[in-house]
C-alpha cells in the first residue's frame, strides 16, 4: 500500500518533470535556432512515420528502364540510383531506418552510460575506479576502428550496429554522468535525503538524476547527430545495413563511383544526412544556451 502510493507519487513527480520539460521545449521553440532544429527533426519523423503512404515507389523495386536514364524527371523527382530504384522513395524509407537505428542506439547508450556513471560517481571507491578505467580503455580507441572491429566481429545487421554504437558511446556518457553526480552528491539536499534514511537507489533516481537532465540532454542531441554520421560512415565502409535496406549512408557509397556523371545519386542522401545532423546540433546548442530553471 505504502509502496504503491509512493510509487504513484514518484511517477507523478516524473510526470510533472516531463510536463515541465515539454514547457521548456515550448519555451525554446520561440528561439529561432531551436525552432529550426526541432522542425527539421519533426519533418523527418513525419516522413518516417508516413513512409508507406507518401513514398511514390517501392524503395527496393528495380526498374531497368529507369536505370538507363537515372537523372531527375517528372516521374522520378530525385531521379534513380544505378539499379534504377527511385531515389525519393529510398530517401523516404531511409528516414525510417535512421529513425530506428539512431534513437535505439543512442537511447541504449544513455541507459547503459547513466546506469554505470551515476553509481560510480555516487559511491566512489573501487567501483568508480573499475568503471572509469574500463571507460578510459574504450575511449582510448578511435571510435571508427572500434566500430570496424565490432561490426566485422559481429557481422553487419541492425542489432549489431546498435550494439556497436552503444558500446562505443556508453563510456563517454558514463563519464559525463559520473562528473555531474560527483558535484551533485556534495549538495546539502543529498545529505538531507541521507538523514531521512533514503535508499541509495532513491537518491540516485529522484534526487540526482532530475538535476543531471540538462547537460545529459545536450549531450544526447549531439550524440544523436554523430550517430547519424556514424551510421552513414559505416554504410560507406560497407559495414552498414545489408542491402537492399534503404540506408542513407549506403546510398552514398553505392553511387560514389558515378559522382562525376550522376551527382544527384550521392547529393540527395548527403543532404538528408546533413540536415538531420545540423538539426541535432542546433537543438543541442539552443538547449545549452537556455539558462533553464
Amino acid at each position: 500500500m505504502t509502496l504503491s502510493s509512493s510509487t504513484y507519487r514518484e511517477t507523478l513527480s516524473w510526470a510533472t518533470a516531463g510536463s515541465r520539460l515539454l514547457l521548456r521545449v515550448a519555451a525554446i521553440s520561440r528561439n529561432p535556432t531551436a525552432f529550426a532544429g526541432l522542425s527539421v527533426l519533426v519533418f523527418w519523423a513525419t516522413v518516417a512515420v508516413l513512409a508507406p503512404l507518401i513514398s511514390p515507389y517501392d524503395p527496393t523495386a528495380i526498374d531497368f528502364s529507369a536505370a538507363a536514364d537515372p537523372m531527375p524527371s517528372w516521374s522520378h523527382w530525385l531521379g534513380n540510383d544505378s539499379s534504377g530504384r527511385d531515389l525519393l522513395s529510398r530517401i523516404i524509407w531511409g528516414a525510417r531506418t535512421t529513425y530506428t537505428v539512431v534513437p535505439l542506439a543512442v537511447g541504449s547508450a544513455f541507459i547503459l552510460g547513466i546506469a554505470l556513471g551515476v553509481p560510480a560517481g555516487y559511491f566512489g571507491g573501487w567501483a568508480d575506479t573499475f568503471i572509469s578505467r574500463v571507460s578510459d580503455v574504450i575511449l582510448a580507441f578511435p571510435v571508427l576502428i572500434l566500430y570496424i572491429i565490432l561490426i566485422t566481429a559481429l557481422g553487419p545487421s541492425l542489432i549489431n550496429i546498435i550494439v556497436a554504437v552503444t558500446l562505443s558511446y556508453a563510456p563517454g556518457v558514463s563519464r559525463l554522468a559520473r562528473g555531474i553526480t560527483l558535484s551533485l552528491r556534495e549538495q546539502d539536499y543529498i545529505a538531507a535525503a541521507q538523514l531521512r534514511g533514503e535508499s541509495s537507489l532513491y537518491i540516485m533516481l529522484v534526487e540526482i538524476l532530475p538535476n543531471a537532465r540538462g547537460p545529459l540532454l545536450v549531450d544526447l542531441c549531439l550524440r544523436a547527430g554523430y550517430t547519424v554520421i556514424m551510421v552513414g560512415t559505416l554504410g560507406f565502409l560497407g559495414l552498414g545495413l545489408p542491402p537492399p535496406t534503404p540506408d542513407w549512408g549506403g546510398m552514398v557509397v553505392e553511387s560514389a563511383h558515378f559522382l562525376s556523371t550522376y551527382w544527384h545519386m550521392s547529393l540527395f542522401p548527403c543532404v538528408a544526412i546533413s540536415s538531420v545532423v545540423i538539426a541535432c546540433n542546433l537543438l543541442a546548442d539552443s538547449l545549452r544556451r537556455d539558462p533553464g530553471r
Binding site: 549538495q187 546539502d188 539536499y189 545529505a191 538531507a192 534526487e207 532530475p210 538535476n211 537532465r213 530553471r293
Partner: peptide, 12 residues
C-alpha cells in the same frame, strides 16, 4: 544546512 542555494533540491 548552511547554504540556501543547495539545501533544497531544485527539481522538486
Amino acid at each position: 544546512f548552511q547554504n540556501p542555494d543547495s539545501t533544497l533540491n531544485p527539481a522538486h
